[in-house]
Amino acid sequence: MSVSKKVSIYGMLVAIGSAIYVVESFMPFPLPLPGARWGFSNVVLVYALPFTNIEWLLAVVIGKALIGALISGKIFTPAFFMGISGSTIAALTMFFSYKTFRKAGMIFHSVLGALSNNVVQVLIGAQIVSSWMIFGYLPYMEILGVISGSANGIVAGIMLKRMKVMR
């Protein structure tokens, strides 16, 4: 794949990701935790897994978080830092799990990413409010993470099956 083609494809992924990021902020989240969200914008990361390498994946993560936060006006708030650190870890986890577990389906990688995302988000949140009490929310966040992670995995897997992936 030539560099210009790569730039256009990953640019499109960033655009879709930040659009979902903004639309997602209108969705109600059942937990009273600042910065916690469904994380449906990470579907572009799952979609990119089969043809990406790690630098481009991290570029998508950072571009998505920066542009999405700029549009929704959340940039440099605690929620922004929790989101960007969470999705960075999610991207790394999904990348290595995709490389390691070759028999597992997309949904498995996606859920693994969502779980690690939530753990790191809570860790960063605990640093921000300098209290470990926030860990009481972790089990509920993980349950919702499994739900949104499965949704992401199914959507991205079906999209990968139906659409021609450019390589």
């Binding site: 089969p50 997309m106 949904i107 897997g157």
Partner: peptide, 8 residues
Amino acid sequence: MKNRNVVT
């Protein structure tokens, strides 16, 4: 593309 399952 390598054939990977969505859900197993």
